[in-house]
């Protein structure tokens, strides 16, 4: 039984341009005695070969449910999911032969060492060829060769995540689903994982990255889908997403939250004003407007005296600004 389809056979198998496609997919849960809960609402996207596609959303936004749909663990209530042209919940085995998942949980056996974990995984998944050599290769790829004989229970969180990535890669998948791959991981391990993922995508692997780390999405993603409460709220490249919001911001730091609040109130007529404690951010339509606002502040027209402004800076919107603009600032459960 082969676990790796070469690109040619994959094209034959799918006949589609996209490796993963969701077409107006919804997932609804009926909970006894409670209202219907919609985990995913009319979600559509497509991931072509070699692309890193990022699902960015707050906790409980439906990211993991979407991943479960793609790997066939859940059937959509409405709409259609296609992976390699197949419906995963109907053709689970076929889909899983070419798809690997790096789940949110590390899913490793603590009392086995790295090598034993990978050998078990390879044998259970039916990896063909010289498995021991392939285990050596993926261990090298994630830089765990030196610790391969140590029990996984002694590994740091970052090492465990790298080993989980190695395990996913052992089957040589055509598509990879990464569910929060750098959750609780140190900077060095995070960078190592990012480097490997980028190399894999450059080699033609399609990657679905689910994360709520802005930096991760900014660094890795070719396209980003912001998802909130199960529904897509914005999609595009980083540049396209930034273009959808006010790109230039004036960030003002006031002497106290009270002054900041008064200034926020006084500036409410401007395009977009938000406040976080004693920092007020003003969305600008262009740099000339920055000068106008600063001049007005200098004249004390925005509820604060010039001496009450501690600092100001002009900055471009980053993904976090985009994300907060689309998903709001309220806390999620």
């Amino acid at each position: 039984m082969t676990t790796m389809a070469d690109p040619a056979s994959l094209r034959d198998l799918t006949g589609h341009d996209s490796v993963i496609e969701l077409d107006r997919v919804s997932v609804r849960f009926h909970r006894r005695g409670k209202e219907e809960f919609v985990a995913v609402r009319e979600l559509s996207f497509a991931i072509p070969r070699g692309q890193i596609f990022c699902l960015l959303g707050p906790n409980g936004s439906g990211k993991t449910t979407t991943i479960n749909l793609i790997c066939g663990l859940r059937k959509p209530t409405d709409g259609q999911v296609r992976v390699f042209g197949q419906e995963p919940h109907k053709e689970r085995k076929t889909v899983l032969r070419n798809l690997a998942v790096m789940p949110q949980e590390t899913a490793l056996y603590d009392s086995l060492n790295a090598r034993e974990n990978l050998l078990f995984h390879g044998n259970y998944y039916g990896v063909s060829g010289d498995l021991k050599a392939q285990v050596g290769e993926v261990l090298k790829l994630v830089q765990l060769t030196d610790r391969q004989n140590d029990r996984v229970g002694t590994y740091s969180g970052g090492m465990q995540r790298r080993l989980t990535l190695a395990r996913a890669l052992l089957t040589k998948p055509q598509a990879l689903l990464l569910d929060e791959p750098t959750l609780g991981v140190d900077v060095q391990s995070r960078q190592a994982i990012w480097d490997r993922v980028r190399e894999l995508a450059d080699g033609g692997m399609s990657v679905l990255l689910s994360t709520n780390y802005m930096e991760e999405a900014e660094t890795l993603a070719d396209r980003i889908l912001i998802i909130d409460r199960g529904a897509a709220v914005a999609e595009g490249t980083l540049a396209e997403l930034k273009a959808k919001v006010t790109a230039l911001r004036l960030v003002l730091r006031f002497a106290s939250p009270d002054v900041a609040q008064a200034a926020e109130h006084a500036m409410s007529a401007l395009h977009r004003v938000t406040r976080d404690d004693q920092v007020v951010t003003v969305g600008l339509e262009g740099s000339p407007q920055a000068l106008e606002v600063l001049a007005a502040l200098q004249q004390g027209r925005f509820g604060a005296q010039p001496r009450q402004i501690e600092s100001f800076e002009l900055k471009d919107a980053n993904l976090q600004d985009v994300f907060l603009e689309f998903t709001g600032r309220s806390l999620r459960n």
Binding site: T3, K93, P103, D110, H121, Y125
Partner: peptide, 17 residues
């Protein structure tokens, strides 16, 4: 308990093994 069930379930196999 070890949170490894997903790895088993996502194998391209039936439940028989």
């Amino acid at each position: 308990e070890d949170r490894t069930a997903k790895g088993i379930v996502l194998a391209p196999r039936s439940f028989t093994p």
